[in-house]
């Protein structure tokens, strides 16, 4: 395989691996900007993934599957929203419970669908543009959801920073007491934000089960919900930086796969290095488990670096994040 083609493949793979993270992180970003910390992203993604998959199998239409996944994500989020906003349960505990619930529920509903083959979502080549060398395959030969993820990113940015509704959302996340005193319905606004987060989580799940894999396997999100949560902090609550973070993570995922594949050819080259160092390096490269940790390790490193800048975090982080709102007398 020629090196140039490999590079293009890696880049396209990067975008595909990053896209579910873009969806989930954008949803969580809106939720957190309203001041709510929902740790149930992983659970909402899984339920979204399995619902989308089953509906696609039953109807044959991946687009109906996507809609079902969004609806499932919203329903999951509503469980969280009802508990935290009306019954004032602790957000962290409720979010964790939602993830655990989602893992179990998705495994249960998906039991008979493991390994069922489906026709996943196909790429839509944009006529003309997709034939341009390099840029064509890279940017204009993707499935519908990748285009949608970019559109949603622009939409979320515009909403947050250019519209009045976005201003109110940020205000509620900044100080719910002040927002309440001025006369905004904190609970209603937060509930809407939580639902949006759920819908986006479901969509992220659908991308995995309908496009990326495409099949259903238990626990197939493999921690991507948690990565999406980390990405929101990584991006210091800025939508554009979510995209950068998601693609960075996607890129490292794909690279580690390619390194594993290349492991054999490397081993002969490494045999020149005397033992035991060469053997040790070989063992590391050949250990797929160790390589699979690479993206997660990278996330931890980047998060540690970002968190050093307290000012940046303070100015962008919603000040009421995770705090329950008790409308006082």
């Amino acid at each position: 395989m020629d090196g140039f083609e490999t590079t293009i493949n890696i880049l396209v793979g990067t975008i595909r691996a990053g896209t579910p993270l873009v969806f989930a992180a954008l949803g969580e970003l809106i939720t957190e900007k309203a001041g709510v910390l929902n740790l149930g992203v992983e659970g909402m993604m899984l339920v979204g993934a399995v619902s989308g998959f089953i509906v696609t199998v039953l109807t044959g239409s991946p687009y109906l599957g996507i809609l079902a996944a969004i609806a499932a994500g919203v329903l999951m989020a509503l469980i969280f929203g009802g508990l935290t906003q009306f019954l004032l349960t602790n957000q962290v505990a409720t979010g964790l419970a939602l993830t655990i619930f989602g893992v179990g529920l998705s495994a249960f509903i998906g039991l008979n669908y493991i390994g069922t083959p489906i026709q996943g979502l196909q790429p839509i080549a944009i006529p003309g543009l997709s034939e341009i060398p390099v840029i064509g395959p890279l940017l204009f030969n993707h499935d519908f959801l990748i285009y949608l993820s970019i559109a949603l990113l622009v939409l979320v940015s515009w909403f947050l920073y250019k519209t009045r509704a976005g201003l109110i959302l940020r205000a509620v996340g900044e100080s719910h007491d002040a927002a309440h005193a001025i006369g905004y319905s904190v609970v209603k606004i937060r509930l809407l934000a939580i639902m949006f987060g759920g819908g986006m989580g479901g969509l992220a799940g659908a991308y995995l089960s309908l496009v990326y894999t495409p099949q259903w396997a238990e626990n197939m999100t493999a921690g991507r919900g948690w990565i999406a949560l980390a990405l929101v902090v990584f991006a210091t609550w800025r939508p554009a930086r979510v995209l950068i973070g998601a693609y960075l993570f996607g890129g490292i995922t794909i690279l580690s796969l390619h390194v594993q594949a290349a492991g054999d050819s490397v081993s002969s080259a490494l045999s020149i290095i005397p033992n035991p160092v060469g053997e040790w390096i070989l063992a590391v490269i050949n250990s797929s488990h160790l390589l699979a940790t690479l993206p997660y390790l990278a996330t931890v490193v980047v998060l540690a670096l970002i968190s050093r800048d307290a000012t940046k975090i303070r100015l962008n982080a919603p000040a009421s994040l995770g705090r329950p709102f008790h409308p006082g007398a």
Partner: peptide, 15 residues
């Protein structure tokens, strides 16, 4: 005060 620290004066008044 019912003000939002990370927003501008105009945004605060607008709210």
């Amino acid at each position: 005060f019912n003000l939002f620290e990370t927003l501008t004066v105009a945004e605060n008044i607008s709210l």
